[in-house]
Structures are given as structure tokens and as C-alpha cells.
């Protein structure tokens, strides 16, 4: 299975400058910005008020 890479997203990732969505530790944002990488920090809190069962159900319902 050899895939022609130019057209695939994973190949394209290496050829373009990443643009990052950071979900979690805020410390990573500064490092990326220092390298001129665009970052959007998500103001993350545990989904469904931290109820893992509800979060799993929501994932199945496709949020």
C-alpha cells in the first residue's frame, strides 16, 4: 500500500506551516507563538460538566 503523498493531508501537513488549536495546557501556546506559529487556545473545561457517561453519549450523537 504505497500512497501518493502529495495530495494527502498528512503529506500536506509537512509541507505547510502548522496552524494549531491548543486544547489543554496553556504553557504550550507561548512556545508556539514564539516560533511564529498561529495558535487558538480553547478555553477548555470538562465536557458535559465532567460527566464521562454524558460526554461519551454526546460523542456518539456526534458533537
Amino acid at each position: 500500500m504505497v500512497i501518493k503523498q502529495e495530495g494527502t493531508p498528512s503529506g500536506r501537513l509537512l509541507m505547510s506551516k502548522p496552524s494549531v488549536v491548543n486544547v489543554g495546557l496553556a504553557g504550550f501556546v507561548k512556545d508556539l507563538r514564539d516560533c511564529d506559529i498561529e495558535v487558538v487556545q480553547v478555553d477548555w473545561t470538562p465536557p458535559a460538566d465532567g460527566d464521562p457517561k454524558m460526554a461519551a453519549l454526546l460523542a456518539k450523537l456526534g458533537t
Binding site: 494549531v20 488549536v21 491548543n22 495546557l25 487558538v40 480553547v42
Partner: peptide, 22 residues
């Protein structure tokens, strides 16, 4: 600040990588 990946992607349509450390 966006509260979700969905909203973050809307705010930054060029985003191509998520760094997840939750």
C-alpha cells in the same frame, strides 16, 4: 476565547493541527 474545538476551527479556519493535553 472559544470553548470548544468546533468554535476554535470556526474562528481559525486555517487550523490544521490540534494539540491535546487535557
Amino acid at each position: 476565547r472559544p470553548r470548544s474545538i468546533a468554535a476554535a476551527v470556526k474562528a481559525a479556519p486555517a487550523a490544521n493541527l490540534a494539540l491535546i493535553s487535557v
